Simulated assay, not measured.
Amino acid sequence: MPAPTPETTASGLATGTRTVLVASDLDRTLIYSSGALALGMPDPQAPRLLCVEVHEAKPLSYLTERAAEELRALAAETVFVPTTTRTRKQYQRIRLPGTAPAYAICANGGHILVDGVSDPDWQAEVRGRLAEACAPLAEIRAYLTETTDPSWVRKHRVAEDLFAYLVIERDLLPEGWLDRFTAWADERGWTVSLQGRKVYAVPRPLTKSAAMREVARRVGATLTLAAGDSLLDADLLLAADLAWRPGHGELADTELTAPHLAALAERGVAAGEEIIRRFRAAAHEHRHTA
Results as ranks from 00 to 15, higher is better:
residue 164 A to R: 06
residue 24 S to K: 01
residue 286 H to Q: 12
residue 87 T to F: 09
residue 262 A to P: 00
residue 210 A to G: 12
residue 217 R to I: 03
residue 37 L to Y: 02
residue 1 M to R: 06
residue 274 E to Q: 13
residue 88 R to I: 13
residue 277 R to I: 01
residue 182 T to H: 12
residue 11 S to P: 00
residue 254 T to L: 09
residue 226 A to P: 03
residue 290 A to Q: 13
residue 230 S to P: 13
residue 210 A to W: 09
residue 63 L to Q: 05
residue 200 Y to F: 15
residue 204 R to D: 15
residue 148 T to I: 11
residue 99 T to I: 05
residue 282 A to W: 12
residue 98 G to Q: 06
residue 120 P to I: 15
residue 68 A to M: 11
residue 82 P to D: 06
residue 104 A to Y: 08
residue 256 L to S: 01
residue 230 S to N: 13
residue 245 R to T: 08
residue 137 L to K: 14
residue 127 R to T: 07
residue 216 A to D: 05
residue 65 E to R: 09
residue 98 G to I: 05
residue 147 T to F: 04
residue 133 A to K: 12
residue 239 A to R: 00
residue 264 L to K: 00
residue 31 I to M: 06
residue 96 L to H: 01
residue 263 A to Y: 01
residue 230 S to R: 10
residue 285 E to S: 09
residue 171 D to V: 04
residue 258 A to L: 02
residue 133 A to Q: 15
residue 197 R to I: 13
residue 207 T to G: 05
residue 177 W to H: 10
residue 80 F to A: 00
residue 105 I to Y: 08
residue 115 D to V: 03
residue 49 L to M: 04
residue 159 A to E: 14
residue 3 A to F: 11
residue 100 A to G: 02
residue 203 P to L: 13
residue 173 L to A: 10
residue 28 R to K: 15
residue 79 V to A: 03
residue 266 E to Y: 01
residue 21 L to N: 00
residue 149 D to T: 14
residue 289 T to G: 03
residue 140 I to F: 13
residue 277 R to A: 12
residue 169 E to R: 13
residue 116 G to R: 04
residue 213 R to H: 10
residue 64 T to S: 11
residue 101 P to C: 00
residue 25 D to Y: 09
residue 170 R to A: 11
residue 221 A to F: 06
residue 24 S to A: 06
residue 242 L to W: 02
residue 235 D to P: 07
residue 132 E to V: 14
residue 239 A to S: 12
residue 146 E to D: 14
residue 254 T to I: 10
residue 108 N to T: 13
residue 44 P to T: 05
residue 53 E to M: 12
residue 229 D to I: 10
residue 171 D to F: 04
residue 276 I to D: 09
residue 96 L to P: 07
residue 228 G to W: 02
residue 121 D to V: 11
residue 218 R to G: 11
residue 66 R to C: 04
residue 89 K to A: 14
residue 59 P to R: 06
residue 183 A to L: 08
residue 224 T to V: 11
residue 65 E to I: 04
residue 217 R to Q: 12
residue 49 L to G: 03
residue 31 I to H: 02
residue 275 I to R: 01
residue 246 P to I: 07
residue 116 G to K: 11
residue 113 L to S: 03
residue 284 H to S: 11
residue 86 R to T: 03
residue 41 M to D: 13
residue 73 A to E: 10
residue 238 L to C: 04
residue 287 R to A: 13
residue 265 A to I: 12
residue 11 S to L: 05
residue 108 N to H: 14
residue 210 A to P: 02
